[in-house]
């Protein structure tokens, strides 16, 4: 179970803007410890956003994304007071889902 995300969603003129801040180490697997041992890869591989059971964003992440990634996207539709759910899966099989209510 990963750490919670921060999600802010606002609807305006029929478009919903979603800002997501994820908490993740995002290790590339290329970095070495001071003693030369490799730091194992550990990063988010998939991000999905759902609104009323409909997938509004489906993305693949990789090693080139920074630690604690920030993602902003917009989708058509979405009403104030409704919920948006965001989830991610990482390469270790860990996952996290958080919900936010769309604000005006």
């Amino acid at each position: 179970m990963g750490n919670p995300m921060k999600i802010r969603a606002t609807a305006k003129d029929g478009v919903t803007e979603v800002k997501i801040l994820m908490q993740h180490e995002m290790e590339t697997g290329l970095r070495k410890e001071a003693d030369g041992t490799l730091v194992p890869a550990w990063f988010i591989t998939e991000v999905k956003a759902q609104y009323q059971g409909r997938t509004v964003l489906d993305g693949q992440f990789g090693q080139s994304i920074s630690k604690n990634p920030y993602l902003l996207f917009r989708f058509k539709g979405g009403a104030v007071g409704e919920k948006i759910a965001v989830s991610w899966v990482d390469n270790k099989g860990d996952s996290r889902t958080d919900e936010a209510t769309i604000a005006a």
Binding site: N3, K6, K19, L21, Q23, K67, N68, Y70
Partner: peptide, 9 residues
């Protein structure tokens, strides 16, 4: 990136 400041965590 200011409205996605990881300092919030």
């Amino acid at each position: 990136i200011s409205d996605g400041n990881p300092a919030e965590f």
